[in-house]
Design a binder for these strands. Structure first.
Lengths: 213, 213
DNA sequence: ATGGCACAAATTGTTCAACAACAACACCCG
DNA sequence: CGGGTGTTGTTGTTGAACAATTTGTGCCAT
C-alpha cells in the first residue's frame, strides 16, 4: 500500500485528478485557501509544485487554473509515452518485481470491466502502464510518467465516454502481458507501439468530436 | 537568444548551475532571503519549484540544500538519457531546425576546446545533446532533459578535472553529427549509444575516484 | 451603437512580524 | 560514559497589510 501523503500538495493533487475541480477551473487563492483551511502563502507553495508537475497552469498575475490539456498536449504525451514505454518493456526482465504489478493491474482491470466501473478501470489501466515504466528501474522516468499520466487523466475527465476510452484495452493489456512473458520484451515492445498508436487515436477521436460537435 | 527570465526561481537556478553554491550546501531561508533581498515566503516558493526540478533537495523541517548527485543519480541520469536521446536521433529529420543548433554547438565546442575554456565547453556539449532531444519536438521530453542536464552539471561541479570530462567528446560530437547527416538517424543512434556508455563511464570513473581518494 | 478612456474593484505578488513545530546541540545527572 | 533534559536555531504556517496588475464598469465622443 502506498502510504497516504497528507501534505497539502498531495491532497490538492488527488482532488484535482479525481475531477473535483474540472479542467480549466480557476483556482482562487483566497477562496480555496479558506476552503482548505490554510493560509494563502502555504497554498501558493503547493501551487508552485503542482504547476511544475503540469497539473495546474500558472499565468503570472492571473492566477492558476486546473490544466486543460489541448490536442497538442495529448499528442505530445503519447509521443513521450512511445519513447519510454516500449523501450522499458523491450529491456525489461520477466523476473522484475514490476511484472507482479503488471499482472495485478491486468486482473484489477478485468474485474472492474465486469463491474462496469469505468473510473476504477481507468486507474487500473494506468497502473498497468506505470508498472511497465517501472521495469526500467529509473526514478526519473517514473517521475516523468507519473506527471504525464496525471495530465492524461485530466484529458480523460473532459471526455464523458469512459467506457469507449478504457474498456477496449483490458484484453489488450492481458495479451500484452502474455506476449511479454512468452515471447519476450522486444516482441511485446512492438505490440505496445501499435497499442499506443491505437490508444492515442481513441483519445484524439473522442477529443476532437468533443470540440467540434 | 533565449530571453533572460529574471524571476527569482531562474536567478537562483542559474546561480546554482554556475556553481555559486557548491552541491550539498545548505540554503538557509533567512540568510539567503536577506542576501537576495526578498522575503522568506517568496524564497520558499522558488525553493519548491527548484525542488521539483531536482536542483535542490528539500527535507521537511530540515530545509533545502543544493542537490549533490550520488553515483546512483548519475547512473539513473544516463539511463534516462539512453532511453531518450538515441530514439530522438533515430527518428529525427536532417531538415529539422534543431540540426542547425547541433551544428552550432559542435562548432562552439571546437572553439572552446582550442581556447581551453572548459566551462564553456561543458555548456556547448550540453547544448549539443539538448539539440538532439529537440529533434523529437516534444516539450515534455525537452523538459525532462533540461532538468536532467542541470543535475548532471551539479555532478560535474564536484569533479575538478573538467578537461578530461569534456574535451574527449568534441570530436565525437562532430563525428556523430556527420554520421547523422550522411548515414541517417538509426546509424547515428547506434553511435550515440556507445557514446553515452563511454560518457557515463568517464563521469562515474571520476566520481568514484573522487569519493575513494 | 461603437470604440476608446479613465476609474473602480478584485486578484495576485510580496513583505513583515509573530508564533508553533521540529531538529540539532550542549549540558547535567546518574 | 550513556541517557535524559533544556536550550537554541531553523523551518512551517499564519494573518494582515500594501503594491502591482488585471479585469470590469461606466462615461464620453464619434
Amino acid at each position: 500500500m502506498p502510504e497516504v501523503d497528507d501534505t497539502l500538495t498531495n491532497v490538492l493533487r488527488r482532488r484535482i485528478i479525481d475531477g473535483e475541480f474540472a479542467p480549466g477551473t480557476r483556482l482562487s487563492e483566497i477562496s480555496l485557501a479558506e476552503k482548505l483551511g490554510v493560509s494563502r502563502n502555504t497554498l501558493r507553495e503547493a501551487f508552485r509544485v503542482l504547476s511544475e508537475q503540469g497539473l495546474v497552469e500558472h499565468v503570472p498575475n492571473r492566477g492558476v487554473s486546473v490544466a486543460s490539456p489541448t490536442v497538442a498536449d495529448v499528442v505530445d504525451i503519447y509521443r513521450a509515452r512511445r519513447y519510454v514505454e516500449p523501450a522499458a518493456l523491450a529491456a525489461g526482465s520477466p523476473l522484475h518485481p514490476a511484472v507482479t504489478a503488471m499482472r495485478e493491474a491486468v486482473e484489477h482491470g478485468e474485474t472492474s470491466l465486469e463491474a462496469r466501473d469505468w473510473r476504477t478501470l481507468g486507474t487500473a489501466n494506468m497502473a498497468f502502464h506505470d508498472a511497465i515504466v517501472a521495469l526500467a528501474d529509473s526514478p526519473r522516468l517514473e517521475r516523468l510518467f507519473r506527471d504525464i499520466a496525471a495530465e492524461l487523466r485530466l484529458a480523460f475527465l473532459e471526455i464523458d465516454n469512459p467506457e469507449a476510452l478504457h474498456a477496449p484495452f483490458v484484453t489488450r493489456n492481458r495479451a500484452l502481458l502474455e506476449t511479454f512473458l512468452e515471447q519476450g520484451g522486444p516482441a511485446a515492445a512492438a505490440e505496445l507501439q501499435d497499442y499506443l498508436v491505437l490508444s492515442e487515436r481513441t483519445v484524439l477521436g473522442a477529443f476532437t468530436r468533443l470540440r467540434h460537435g
